[in-house]
């Protein structure tokens, strides 16, 4: 599964994207896996209320299932316009 990070999430994790093997059933499970990896992930995912998530380029929430998902992106609230 491809995991993408944008804005300050990318800066904290230190990568724009990576491919990982995971059996996480939901976005929340995936976040737990990532948090457990290294301090920089724990720092990036410290406060989920400050984060948004997209699964296969559709905005969703942290309860969303990951079955069949190819791409998960984490980022702060968007500031377009």
């Amino acid at each position: 599964m491809d995991i993408l990070y944008f804005a300050w999430v990318r800066e904290r994790v230190g990568l724009p994207r990576e491919r990982i093997e995971t059996t996480a059933a939901t976005v929340a499970d995936l976040v737990e896996e990532l948090r457990a990896r290294e301090e920089r992930y724990a720092a990036a995912f410290a406060d989920l209320s400050a984060l948004r998530v997209a699964v296969d380029q559709e905005l969703t929430d942290f309860d969303a299932p990951l079955a069949g998902a190819r791409e998960v992106a984490f980022f702060p609230p968007m500031t377009g316009g």
Binding site: A7, A54, M78, T79, G80, G81
Partner: peptide, 26 residues
């Protein structure tokens, strides 16, 4: 369109000044 572009289009802005850089908060 403008209301939705502000908070539903995946863009992020970072402002750079002499004293440093900061992500624009929503």
């Amino acid at each position: 369109l403008m209301d939705y572009l502000k908070s539903r289009a995946p863009f992020w802005k970072k402002e750079y000044t002499r004293s440093g850089a900061e992500w624009v908060a929503s």
